[in-house]
């Protein structure tokens, strides 16, 4: 595989990661969200494998494998089990309507492109062009957390944000040191478990997962 082709492939995967971020925003069914999230993880792991191969960095293979294991198989499975167990209503309920969210998303992409321009100028890595995509993925994940009602969708948004950060690390510096990555992976796993417990608790307390209900927690003034 020549350098040129791997750049093309990596860019292609970056584009698909961006697409999955938008798909997460557009999806109306919770199961659909899980599938898209798994795809995003898959593209991510493929991209880091390519970077590992091209730049010849061994530990990135480990990250790639870890991503594949955690984000494509384990986390979606945990969430799937959770949704099934709690018998959650399967429609995503947006706070802001979906087309508007999309337009905001496009604006965020342009913004992050604008923001990462100086880095692109300075960096010499072949992955530098994907940094804008990584940043947009983070911002779009954040946007998803803001504009959705349900706790489960927010968890997925959070995980998508983490995907973006991971991708940013790969594209800006060819990934973080292995120790850090392992730590992050563990964190994510634990976070998912804690989220699971939280969601369960919210559900038992309020009888719903609608986060607007949390407003009731504040003191009446």
């Amino acid at each position: 595989m020549t350098h040129g082709i791997s750049i093309q492939l990596n860019n292609f995967l970056a584009a698909f990661i961006l697409l999955t971020s938008f798909a997460l925003l557009a999806q109306r069914r919770i199961y659909g969200l899980l599938v898209i999230f798994a795809w995003q993880g898959f593209f991510l792991s493929l991209s880091s494998a390519i970077v590992a191969y091209t730049a010849d960095i061994r530990h990135l293979y480990v990250s790639a494998a870890l991503t594949l294991l955690l984000k494509v198989i384990v986390l979606p499975y945990i969430l799937y089990a959770l949704i099934n167990k709690l018998n959650i209503f399967r429609e995503v309920e947006p706070l802001v309507n979906i087309p508007t969210t999309m337009l905001i998303g496009v604006a965020l992409v342009i913004f992050s492109y604008h923001l990462t321009a100086p880095v692109r100028e300075l960096s010499t890595l072949f992955t530098r062009t994907t940094l804008a995509v990584a940043l947009s993925t983070v911002l779009l994940g954040f946007l998803m957390m803001i504009t959705r009602k349900k706790a489960v969708t927010q968890v997925i948004g959070f995980l998508a944000m983490e995907n973006g950060l991971f991708f940013a690390a790969t594209s800006a510096t060819y990934g973080m040191p292995l120790v850090v990555e392992l730590g992050v992976a563990l964190d994510i796993l634990i976070a998912a478990l804690i989220f699971g417990i939280f969601i369960f608790q919210i559900r038992t307390t309020f009888d719903t997962l609608d986060l607007t209900e949390m407003e009731k927690l504040k003191e009446d003034s």
Partner: peptide
């Protein structure tokens, strides 16, 4: 969605 896809196409041309 079609518009979004086409716009992403335009953006990724410049970005990637």
């Amino acid at each position: 969605t079609a518009f979004l896809l086409a716009t992403l196409g335009m953006l990724s041309h410049f970005m990637l």
